[in-house]
Design a protein around this nucleic acid. Sequence first.
DNA 1: CCTGTCACG
DNA 2: GACGTACGTGACAGGG
Length: 931
Amino acid sequence: MTFGKGCHLHLIDGSAFIFRAYHALPPLTRKSDGLPIGAVAGFCNMLHRYVEGNTGPDAPTHVAVIFDKGSHTFRNDMYDLYKANREAMPEDLRPQMPLTRRATEAFNIACKELEGYEADDMIATLSVQAREAGGRVTIISSDKDLMQLVGGGVEMLDAMKNRRIDRDGVHEKFGVYPERVVDVQALAGDSVDNVPGAPGIGIKTAALLINEYGTLEELLNRAGEIKQPKRRETLIEHRAQIELSKRLVQLDCETPLDFGLDDLEVKDPDPDTLLSFLAEMEFRTLSKRIADQLGAEAPEIVEPDAPSAPAGTPEAPDFGEATYEKVSTAEELERWIALARARGYVAVDTETTGLDEMRADLVGVSLCVEAGHACYIPLAHKEGEEGQLFGSDELTEGQIGLEQCLSLIKPLLEDPSVMKIGQNMKYDAKMLKRYGIDIAPIDDTMLMSYALHAGEHNHGMDALSERYLGHNPIPIKSLLGGGKSAITFDRVGIDDAVKYASEDADITLRLWQIFKPQLHAQKVTSVYERLERPLVPVLAQMEMHGIKVDRDTLSRMSNAFAQKMAGLEAEIHELAGRSFNVGSPKQLGEILFDEMGIEGGKKGKTGAYATGADILEELATEHELPARVLDWRQLSKLKSTYTDALQDHINPETGRVHTSYLQTGATTGRLASSDPNLQNIPIRSEEGRRIREAFVAEEGKTLIALDYSQIELRILAHIAGIDTLKQAFKDGHDIHAMTASEIFDVPLEDMTPDIRRRAKAINFGVIYGISGFGLARNLRIPRGEAQGFIDRYFERFPGIRAYMDETTEFAKSHGYVETLFGRKIHTPEIAAKGPRAGFAKRAAINAPIQGTAADIIRRAMIRMPEAIAGLPAKMLLQVHDELLFEVENEAVEQTIAVAREIMESAAEPAVKIDVKLIVDAGQGANWAEAH
DNA sequence: CCTGTCACG
DNA sequence: GACGTACGTGACAGGG
């Protein structure tokens, strides 16, 4: 195609791309040989993103990436100090420069440079040629030196901010239009390029003067007329320097090019060339992404867990060759502490007698400062051979005393200039806190893995070690045994303990070295630093506070449940005609469908009849027995899971229940609670709700519950941009009634509870990635009817359908979805075939909504301790959209006000949500009252 | 150890 | 055209 009218030339400032890529990424190296590769990686990513974005009316017909060549140009001949203050190119960038040229060629984009000229001059020349040929030009750069070229079909595009700069944009920046930009620059000078200009005159003054006198020449000729004496003298005195400056900033539009515009025509990349280049660079993610898009097979790249060393640590020894030391004297410990201080970071792991940090005792500490070089400090190992009934309580010889070790190590662990690295640091932090150590600052490999790989795999150390280091750690079972005969870590022989504990610290350090640069490369640094890491001390505090649970209340309820269950059991046996285990679904199924001859029994994959609540409920309309079983099951659940089990979780020392929050448990960013799970305490049934009466405030204190009202629907309204929903929230309307009114054409004043209930189910369904089947089951209506509701819903809210389609498309092309705060949730199953694809699709639709809500409450929690620091209040529990506090009676109102404000504004300033977040508050002597 | 069931948001 | 489906969790009991 001959370049002419209707053509659109894109000129990419290659150097700008490279430097941006270089500074935006950590110093990545190629795994196989340690070649610095970060800038090339960033460059390729930018190029790829650029190519991807080339759709629509602004798509180019011609394109070139223009590079600088050499450092000596004609400007140095004019002025030997030109760009003389530039720092030398970083050592690790230099070898990457030729690779960026190869990258450009691999993408099949014209790659041009010219000895003795700057890229800017070539860009100027090409722009002028294109403009004269009647075409459009977009210069992809934010370099202000290029602004003089704008106009007459030439625009600039700041790729980073995705902002187009036209003549008005230039005027905004320089106070003059493009044709006078060089005049302003000549006066103002440029410290970056070492263009002198006129001393004391900046862009503002320069623009003022140029606008007054028209041109630089006119200004210099009539400089004597200037009223301000200082300016007048400067201009007269430095006239030569100003004129030189103008020649320096003036771009050369007549560089001798050995190619023409027609040579720059846009071409599709050749998959083989591009993919083999990416493979050579060992860019795994990008290769895969591009291969998927081109419909080609991604070439194989050596796995990171292959024999080669992890990035940045080419000298890391194999685990087999690692040296693990036992530290048995204060001198040895001091030497390790010095090593850690010298490094500025140290991996730390604590060994204890159990998994409950509130009750376990510290047994030892391991440290690692360098891959393959770690130590273990045994502190409380006891004598006692295997098989011996009672171990002696004598401490094994050769251990530093606990007190001495703590006093030596405390300054290191609390030193703000030494980073402490751990796997699941919350555990170690809580443990150490009980020994008077506030460990900080911390990095956590488990949380890094979560920020990077949520949805891909779990984040336990064993899994991470195998996956990223290709090494299976020593199983703890091999030291402790299993089952009843399991021993605690203090009974493990010190030599074994040294191997195990040192290895854990070693693995942690190696994982850290791998994950740290990845955070940056994957753009999840801020997720990790703002949403994950700062939550650790907050959760640790909450868990250590615990919540007071009244044993007597639970015990009384247990007895009452037991009595009722016994009555029901007798009734059930009577109805069945024989006694059987009501708690056995298998036996129940046989009774119902074989012995009693009820029709419609369905067997699951195990061959047993299904007896779920939904099935029993259907049967209950006709039969008495299933109805009784349902009652029995409810009581059984409440008793075994709550009234009985909770009592066992009351810590004898504190009289409180201390849950443990798992920060990486849910893929979406939600927390999970365990041991016990305090996020599923009953509330929906009246009988179950009473269990909350056992969760009480201390004497003289009150429990406060604050929960976000409809947070997920509000987020949906924002993300999908549904104006009707936004307005309804703004007006404080009943959102389910409003939805019902919209889709069922019922005026609000005629709303019935049943119609509203249906709309509510649809609203929730939407959040979950609605299906006709799911809604039908939930509402117990025919599938066709449910589908009709959904169809009307989408008709009424087309934006929701669009959101769903866009989200699934995004998941398919990227392999992940994102929350408003940049949390990535990977969706590897999205490409699956069959029913798994359906699961993955709905999960992908739900994840940004649920995840954004999770991010918001996390932000509130992170800010909360400081906000309530002056109040006699403690944050105790989080239940996804609710926070529970315990506060002195007299400060209840104040605490509600403060906490509510933090929660309602938690998204800000990072994200502005179109719908206001509303927090409801309740208070009382127990959780039932407070909610 | 896995499955079914059921408690929560 | 059939198939199987609401999203995210954890604990408990039964049964192999």
